[in-house]
């Protein structure tokens, strides 16, 4: 029983980070119907930027995260404004897939394909609550994920900007009639989506080691979560991530960690077979 609860705790913590790394993908998919294949590459890029800033210039990883996130927002904004908006559907996917490989190769060229990790000395060790171990880095990561999710939910629900995003998602023509600059909404959403994966990439980089081709592993998992949660549904992504996190953790504990990466794909196939619209049938 102890082992079970410990596995569930770990699963929830990991699932929360899955959610954050996937959230940007869901947002971009929901608003623009674009599958951003480069999402995970940007996450790894952010991790490398912070690793580089902290190991060479002794920048605190959390300051580094803020810088990297800002940089990724700007990259996403202009990437959409000048390139992605000209494409759609499969063409956009192909272009972004090309970009993911390009980023991966560039990272291999600059940093090499070896394992790196962002060291945060003050986050080593574990909390112990009622005899269960909660690694401090994962716990802090989870808190940050929750805070980011809460902010996103608040902005979407209550601000004019968030309502404009949801309106554009549901009906871009009518949104324009309301005086909403639809192109600007697309640019900003793309920037936010990329920036979100950056935050997640940095948090992951403090917990696990990473290397450029890890992006290929991550993007598969992320698309599986998006389909399982319901294409474009933010709450579906959150629920789906936690479920996949818990099941993966249970499989790793009771069967073998070798099989844990398969969980997401088994769930993907089952979803497409039984309920192709995912947990939440609709967008946001």
């Amino acid at each position: 029983m102890n082992l079970f609860i410990q596995a569930v705790i770990t699963g929830v913590l990991v699932g929360g980070i899955y959610a954050l790394v996937t959230l940007g993908l869901t947002l971009i998919f929901g608003v623009m119907d674009i599958g951003n294949a480069a999402q995970a590459a940007f996450a790894i890029l952010a991790a490398y930027i912070v690793y580089w800033l902290s190991s060479l210039y002794h920048v605190d990883p959390f300051i580094g995260m803020i810088l990297a996130t800002g940089l990724l927002f700007v990259m996403g904004f202009y990437l959409y404004k000048y390139i992605v908006y000209k494409t759609s559907g499969l063409m956009a996917f192909a272009l972004l897939y090309f970009l993911s490989i390009f980023l991966e190769s560039t990272m291999v060229f600059v940093w090499g394909n070896t394992y790196r990790g962002i060291k945060v000395p003050y986050l080593s060790g574990s909390l112990q609550i009622y005899g269960y171990y909660i690694p401090l880095d994962r716990f802090i990561g989870f808190l940050m994920v929750s805070a980011v999710l809460a902010i996103i939910a608040y902005v979407l629900k209550y601000t004019y900007f968030g309502k404009a995003i949801r309106a554009t998602m549901q009906n871009p023509y009518a949104a324009a009639l309301m005086g909403i600059n639809v192109d600007r909404i697309y640019q900003v959403t793309f920037g936010i989506g990329i920036a979100l994966s950056g935050i997640a990439g940095v948090i992951l980089g403090t917990i696990y080691s990473f290397y450029p081709s890890l992006q290929g592993v991550w993007i598969g998992l992320m698309f599986a979560i998006v389909v399982f949660g319901g294409m474009g549904s933010l709450s579906g992504t959150l629920i789906g991530s936690i479920i996949i996190g818990i099941i993966s953790s249970l499989v790793a504990t009771y069967v073998s960690s070798v099989w844990a990466p398969l969980v997401a794909y088994v769930i993907l196939v089952l979803t497409l077979w039984i309920k192709p619209s995912g947990i939440k049938g609709r967008k946001i």
Binding site: Y160, A174, M178
Partner: peptide, 22 residues
Amino acid sequence: PEGCEIFPYLTVQENLDLGAYL
């Protein structure tokens, strides 16, 4: 517009709020 083109997954209130976007 023809066929109203309301935002179906927003509440009535939110639809009206968006009318006052500018």
